[in-house]
Simulated assay, not measured.
Amino acid sequence: MKIVVLSDTHIPKKAKALPDAIIPDLESADLILHAGDWQVPEVYSMLSAFSKVDGVHGNVDGQDVISLFPDKKIIQAGKFTIGLVHGHGTGKTTEKRAIEAFIGEKVDCIIFGHSHIPVHKVTEGILLFNPGSATDKRRQKQFSYGILEVGEKLSAKHVYFGG
């Protein structure tokens, strides 16, 4: 199973449409996960043209997006459990807030966004993954998104493009 992971698309504020560079992976995705800051619900419609879409809302999403997506979600992908959260809040780092969102819950992976900084590491046996942003790289060298491959193992990678 191929899962394309996005966050912080901020459409139409930072881009008018999905970047061309991500389209081939969207076309071959079995599932698309979005970790919040969609900006507008039309992003859901854009992504739904390619595959099944699921996600959470972020701190800049309005009531129209909040009505579609919760602030936190657990998804089953094959034999793996994935926690999905935006990661915004006060105090601590985005990564620590994302981890704390799932304390007491058994997850194999936590996907989060908010910082626009790509993260890919394992902490206490949990894969932590932030795809970065495909439309708003901020202080990063390149735009990015992620791909999770779900099979006997769960693996993640970033895809970087532009500059």
Rank of each mutant, 00 (worst) to 15 (best):
A49M: 10
L148I: 06
K72A: 14
I111H: 10
P24H: 03
I117V: 15
D108P: 00
I22R: 00
I32G: 01
R139P: 01
G87R: 02
V107Y: 06
G146P: 01
G151R: 12
I126E: 03
T123V: 15
G62M: 11
V159I: 15
L154K: 06
L148M: 11
A98C: 05
V43S: 03
D25E: 12
K92Y: 13
D64I: 08
S45G: 10
I117C: 06
L6V: 06
G162I: 06
I23P: 00
K13T: 11
S28Q: 15
K153R: 15
P131G: 05
L31Q: 04
P19W: 14
D25I: 00
K2A: 04
V159H: 08
L84C: 09
R97L: 13
E27P: 03
T90F: 14
Y145L: 03
G151Q: 13
S7W: 11
I99G: 01
S67E: 14
I103K: 14
K141V: 00
T94L: 04
K73Q: 13
N130C: 07
G62S: 13
I74Y: 04
H10I: 05
K2I: 12
K141H: 07
V60G: 08
I11F: 05
V150M: 02
I22Y: 00
L128G: 03
I99T: 01
S155N: 15
A134H: 07
V40S: 13
F69I: 09
L31M: 14
E149W: 10
G78W: 13
G87S: 03
L18K: 08
A17P: 00
L154Q: 03
K13P: 00
K13C: 12
H34W: 07
A156K: 03
L68T: 04
D71T: 11
L128I: 06
S133T: 08
K121E: 15
A98F: 07
K52F: 11
L154E: 10
F69W: 15
G151A: 15
S48G: 14
F50K: 00
I23K: 03
F112E: 09
T81F: 04
W38C: 02
V56C: 06
I75M: 08
G91M: 05
K121M: 14
G146Q: 07
I3F: 08
E100D: 15
L128D: 07
T9Q: 09
G78P: 02
I32C: 09
A77P: 01
Q39L: 13
D61H: 12
S48I: 07
H158F: 10
P12G: 07
G55R: 11
I66P: 00
C109F: 05
V56A: 09
M1C: 04
D25Q: 04
K153D: 15
V119G: 06
G78M: 12
L154S: 02
I75Q: 06
I23H: 05
S133Y: 07
P118E: 08
G83H: 02
L127S: 02
K92D: 11
H10R: 09
Y145M: 06
V122W: 09
A98D: 08
A21H: 10
V107E: 05
F80R: 05
